[in-house]
Structure formats: structure tokens, C-alpha cells
Design a protein around this nucleic acid. Structure first.
Length: 449
DNA sequence: TCTGGGGTCCTCAAACTC
DNA sequence: TCTGGAGTTTGAGGACCC
């Protein structure tokens, strides 16, 4: 979200009124998306600097309005720094559900012009409009209509880059921000690309830029002219060939509407570093539940469970284990994650994460009950809890270990079996959210639940 | 200034298989 | 049956993206 380092646009080969013949790839990027959504629903804040991000001790900026950027506030910046630079800004915690809702609605506008839409993240997408021209006009005309519709329906602005390839379209939108439209004509691609710094290339971040600079290369033109073996020695074969192709304006990737998720993860950073393994395990339990619930919602199961541990010095350790059967059961994910945590926590931890990888479609992948009959029971229980969360909200049911003492006290007054296992308050079994009979008479036990 | 969270992809080395 | 080499798989770490 606007994380790309701003570079000086080349003086030529780029603009809103240039020839778009042969340019059917569009990159649409919402401007300061999270901040714009907040401004749209709180118009009284318009004109004020708005900063969206984690408000905790270790939060960072997720998005800053352009008024805040004037003060040097950018995304990924520690919130403490943002507060110093722009103390009078409006600071808002992110509302992921609302951003997802608006994102979905905006993507629907895109698909009303072409089915060839590849969402890249919550706030940007590639569109291939080659098949939409007869109906809606040139790429530029389509871009203008899309921008107008997004602004009219959601009171937020977006920027569109149009080019013959995805990479150049993306660069064009980066340079046209905010609230802009830019075309890079097919025969002007090299004139547009070559003056840019190496960091403009997709895949060149801080580390790679340093390696390339050590070779004495500064611009995209330098990469295009450098001997390939020299690049390969420093960057590895794949990266060198990739960057070299981009520097020559070659990008054969098409707009891909069939991207599938490869992993589902959740992580959390503690307000203070934790050296108590059991506390790290408790966090891992909450993360395992989150990952499992999301994988069930997406009808996915995974084979590989990875735990990520970040220490005080920011060094990061990942440890994984691959199961013989795919799972979407929190209890299974957690039992592996907890073991990995216990085996690998040797110093205070600032971040713990849990990832489920090796994903397969749960609908075409039969769940394998093992000799341990509890496996199917746990799955059934967790599916029931999913239903309760959908109907009554995420606070309706939780795991005792994850409920704070204050909440526990508050719940004492309501402490009846039906409050825990999903029946209604009159004590009747809920026929729409069936709870496994086993757990009504014999709730699950175990060290961690 | 002190660094979130959710992802993907690449590289390298070790383990495994043939 | 043992052994070495080549190819494949897996795990770990790092870099990058938004």
C-alpha cells in the first residue's frame, strides 16, 4: 500500500494523454486505502492528517493520508515516530472487516468491465481489458469510467497505470499517484524504464539494491547493459534473469484470475518480550485457532505447520513439521506448534506466528479419522464453534485458557453449561448449531483447553 | 526511529530415494 | 549386499511485496 519508494518520474514516455494502442494491462491502486476508507466514513476529518495503524506500544503505520505524508509519515513507520512527526494527526486503529468489504465492492466494479481481474492485495488489482474495448472503449476510457465509479460509490480515489505489461502498468500507477491516470505507450517502455533507479524493479528491495550497487549499477539501464553472468554470480540465477528481463521491458506474465492460496498464517507481536514458554504457547493456541478457523472458512486443509519466533534482537527462527494427514483442526495445529515452541524458545520472544502450508482443497480431500477417535470429535466441535461465532460473534465461545481473568469474572454470572456449549439461554439445545453429544455430557479435556 | 501482519518466492543444505 | 552419485524433497532462512 504505497510502500514502493517514490522515485522521480522520467520526463518523457509517461502521461494521461499518450497513445494507449497495444496497452491492455491496467494496474489499479487505491490511494492510501485504509486512510481513505476512514475519511469516507468520517467526512469531518477531510483535510486533516489521518494515520491508520496499530495503536499499541509496538504498532506501525498501515496507511497515512496524503495530508499526513507531508509531515514525513509513511506506511511501515513505527507509530511512535509517526506521533512525533505529526502529533496533531487523527490516529485510528485498522478496521480490517470494513476494508475487506470496500475492497470486495471495488473489485466488483472491476469485474463489471472485464472478467480478467487479478487481485494483488486488498487495495490493488491487475485488469486485462483487451476483450472489453468493443463494449467500453479504449483502455484509457475504461480507466476513466472505473475511477469515476469508485469515487462516486465509495468516496475514495484510485490511480490507474496502463501499459503493455503488468510490471510497467504497476510502475505507471506508482508514478501517477495520487488520484491519477498514466499510460506508458508500448513503444516508449524503454524510455520510461531506463532512467529509473534499480529499486524501481519488482524484486529489488533494500538488500538486493545494496548488492547491485556494489556492482556499480545505479539505474535500470545499467542492469539492462550489465553482463548476465556477472549479475548471476551476485544475485543467483533466477533473480538475475528476472531483473534482466524486466530491465529490457520483458514481462510475459499474464493477468491470472486463478491464483490459489498457498498458506494461511497468523502472528502477533507482544507488547513486551516474553520469556515464559507457557505464555508463548498460549499465544500459539490463539493463533492456531485463528488459522484453523480461516482454513475451514476457505475450505482448505494443510500438511505443514510452521512456527515463527522472533527474538529481542529481531533475529527470526522458523521451525516446521509436516503431518502425514492434512488438517484444519486447531487442536492438531496447536499440538505441533506448542511442541515446536517448547523446543525452540531459548530467549525472550517478541513475536510468535503460526502458519499452515501445503494447502489442499478440503472438499476434494477426505478427512482421515485416525485410530485416535478424538480427531474427528475435535473437528466436529470446532465446526460447531465456527457456527456459533458466525451467529453470535467471536466472543460467544472461547477456550478457557484464552479468556482473561476479568472476562472470566464477568462470565461467572452467566456460568451455565449452555453458555459454553452453544445452547440458548432457556437451556434448550440449539437445533441449528448442533453440538456433539459427546461434549455436552463430557466436555473435552486436556492440558491446554 | 526501531521496526505489524499476511503473504509469496528463492536459495541453500541436508535428508532421502533410486 | 554395499556404495557412490544424481535427482528429488523437505526444512530453514531470507528477501520481498503490500
Amino acid at each position: 500500500m504505497g510502500r514502493t519508494t517514490s522515485t522521480v518520474p522520467p520526463p518523457h514516455a509517461f502521461g494521461a494523454d499518450l497513445d494507449d494502442t497495444g496497452c491492455s494491462i491496467m494496474h489499479v491502486d487505491m490511494d492510501a486505502f485504509f486512510a481513505s476508507v476512514e475519511l469516507a466514513r468520517r467526512p469531518q476529518l477531510r483535510g486533516k492528517p489521518v494515520i491508520v495503524g496499530g495503536l499499541g506500544a509496538r504498532g506501525v503505520v498501515s496507511a497515512a493520508s496524503y495530508e499526513a505524508r507531508v509531515y514525513g509519515v509513511n506506511s511501515a513507520m513505527p507509530m511512535a515516530v509517526a506521533r512525533k512527526r505529526c502529533p496533531h494527526a487523527e490516529f485510528i486503529a485498522p478496521d480490517g472487516a470494513e476494508y475487506s468489504r470496500i475492497s470486495k465492492a471495488v473489485m466488483e466494479i472491476f469485474t463489471s468491465y472485464t472478467p480478467q481481474v487479478e487481485p494483488l492485495s486488498i487495495d490493488e488489482a491487475f485488469l486485462d481489458v483487451s476483450g472489453a474495448r468493443r463494449l467500453f472503449g479504449s483502455a484509457k476510457q475504461i480507466a476513466r469510467q472505473i475511477r469515476a465509479e469508485v469515487a462516486e460509490q465509495h468516496s475514495i480515489t484510485c490511480t490507474v497505470g496502463i501499459a503493455s505489461t503488468k510490471f510497467v502498468a504497476k510502475l505507471a500507477s506508482t508514478h501517477a499517484k495520487p488520484d491519477g491516470l498514466a499510460v506508458v505507450p508500448a513503444d516508449e517502455v524503454l524510455a520510461f524504464l531506463h532512467p529509473l533507479p534499480i529499486s524501481a524493479l519488482w524484486g529489488v528491495g533494500e538488500k538486493t539494491a545494496k548488492v547491485i550497487e556494489r556492482l556499480g549499477l545505479r539505474t535500470v539501464a545499467d542492469i539492462a547493459q550489465a553482463p548476465l553472468p556477472r549479475l548471476e554470480r551476485s544475485l543467483g540465477k533466477a533473480t538475475a534473469q528476472h531483473l534482466r528481463a524486466l530491465a529490457h521491458g520483458r514481462d510475459h506474465r499474464t493477468v491470472d484470475t486463478t491464483r490459489v492460496e498457498k498458506s494461511i498464517s497468523a502472528e502477533t507481536t507482544f507488547d513486551v518480550d516474553i520469556d515464559d514458554v507457557s505464555q508463548v504457547c498460549t499465544a500459539a493456541l490463539a493463533l492456531s485457532r485463528k488459522v484453523a478457523a480461516r482454513s475451514r472458512k476457505a475450505s482448505l486443509m494443510g500438511y505443514t505447520i510452521t512456527v515463527k519466533l522472533r527474538s529481542r534482537d529481531f533475529s527470526t527462527k522458523t521451525r516446521s513439521r509436516t503431518l502425514t494427514e492434512a488438517t484444519d483442526v486447531a487442536q492438531e495445529i496447536y499440538s505441533v506448534a506448542a511442541q515446536l515452541v517448547r523446543d525452540n524458545v531459548t530467549s525472550p520472544i517478541r513475536l510468535v506466528g503460526v502458519r499452515l502450508g501445503g494447502l489442499v482443497d478440503a472438499r476434494s480431500h477426505a478427512f482421515q479419522p485416525t485410530l485416535d477417535s478424538g480427531r474427528a470429535d475435535w473437528r466436529e466441535l470446532e465446526r460447531t464453534i465456527d457456527g456459533l461465532h458466525t451467529r453470535f460473534g467471536r466472543d460467544a465461545v472461547s477456550v478457557a485458557r484464552l479468556v482473561s481473568k476479568a472476562e472470566t469474572r464477568a462470565r461467572k454470572a452467566l456460568e451455565k453449561p449452555w453458555n459454553v456449549w452453544g445452547a440458548d439461554k432457556r437451556g434448550k439445545r440449539d437445533d441449528r448449531c448442533e453440538v456433539p453429544a459427546k461434549f455436552l455430557s463430557d466436555p473435552p479435556t486436556g492440558r491446554d483447553i
